[in-house]
Nucleic acid binder design. Structure first.
Lengths: 211, 211
DNA sequence: GCGGAACCTGAATGTTGACTCATGTTTCAA
DNA sequence: TTGAAACATGAGTCAACATTCAGGTTCCGC
């Protein structure tokens, strides 16, 4: 919601960011280190000292940039949301119609998850660590998605239905596929998985009519 | 996986359960209390003393029945798995075909989530607290589900496709719908939601042919 | 080459909470 | 009735951090 759903950095609730180049560099290193540590060990298993060590700064430095452990975490979730939205809208922007956009979207999503495993885990864990941030993440997504579906239905590109329900079902499908084939089985063929998934989303389970 | 995927109680890795009636009663109270506390506050916010207080027993008693905090948690996940499977197979057992079974299943699932919110949260948090238990939960589900789809495809009741992908997409859809309409918006009309969801799963997004 | 703003530091503090254990109490078979 | 197995207890132990703070260091305009 609110202010900075803009683009990339998202150092969030920081009192008006670093003033110098040195400061910006340190902030970036802390954010990166936090993403990797939280992603690898999880929120509760990660100590601030793990983050500062990985970032190569002193323990106290962390609190120059963040008010608390939870604050970095929230900043990371917001950052991940912005990045995911960006990757998806890029991948879909040339789609000739909505069904094709679904195809492209699911594929891009799987690839994105695979190349951002750590941050993906952070987002999922946010459900328990920062529920507000988690709900925002999906709320923003679902609102954009729902609007796409509504417009596509008006154009006759998709059937009409309860878009709120559809959007959540589709987000859930993508999320689980991301977990299973993007994180757990990262050797799986992304192309094949996304084709199969898109086919299900577009045509459903019903047997094909013989024409 | 392993041993006790049997039926209901699942006091799990306990050294050969309680011997007396008194003991069984205490164990049950501890499990129930743990489910409620973990469900309400989450794993890390819940102290063993919260559980024992709710159960009305002394702190030390907890360790008569469980080796650790994590062990109760795992027992609860396993218990929830067994109960969910039971509820679903019951709801679906009279379905005339697979598409109808999908309809009934999604509805039963939403209702089950709504009446077991606490344990539902426990299962989701298991992804971070007891990853092994979480994967088992979905692995068992997906294997049964996949077999159902395969058999239904052989009967011509559903189209054929990559069942591994389909199953995970469908489980993801149900899970998200459970979260959104079962936990977050527990006032929503379950009947309407499950109809819309089943329609999407069965027919997909593609526009209906005019016949 | 000074003064202060921005930045950096890590030892010390304080809290929290899982788990232990020495000591009871209850149950019940013999 | 008795002894021991099963069960119950909660004060005390102990390690693990998150966060603070008092005192540096670096940078830069003047």
């Amino acid at each position: 919601m609110s202010q900075h759903s803009g683009s990339a950095p998202a150092q969030a609730e920081e009192r008006s960011g670093p003033k110098t180049e040195r400061g910006r560099r340190t902030l970036r290193r802390l954010l990166d280190a936090a993403g990797e540590e939280f992603g690898a060990r999880g929120y509760h298993e990660t100590a601030i000292s793990n983050i500062t060590q990985r970032a190569g700064v002193g323990l106290g430095t962390f609190y120059v940039y963040f008010k608390s452990k939870e604050e970095v975490f929230r900043a990371l979730v917001a950052d991940m949301g912005a990045r995911t939205r960006h990757a998806l809208s890029e991948s879909v922007k040339d789609a000739p119609n909505r069904l094709e956009a679904e195809r492209l979207g699911i594929r891009a999503y799987l690839e994105f998850v695979r190349t951002h495993k750590s941050l993906y885990r952070v987002v999922m864990e946010a459900q328990f660590v920062a529920p507000e941030a988690y709900r925002d993440y999906y709320r923003v997504f679902s609102e954009a998605y729902r609007q796409q579906l509504r417009q596509a239905a008006a154009r006759g590109e998709v059937s009409s239905g309860d878009d709120d329900v559809r959007v959540w079902a589709l987000m859930g499908a993508s999320t689980f596929l991301g977990l299973k084939f993007g994180v757990w089985e990262d050797g799986a063929d992304v192309g094949a998985v996304s084709e199969a998934a898109a086919d299900l989303m577009i045509n459903g389970l019903a047997p094909r009519l013989k024409e």
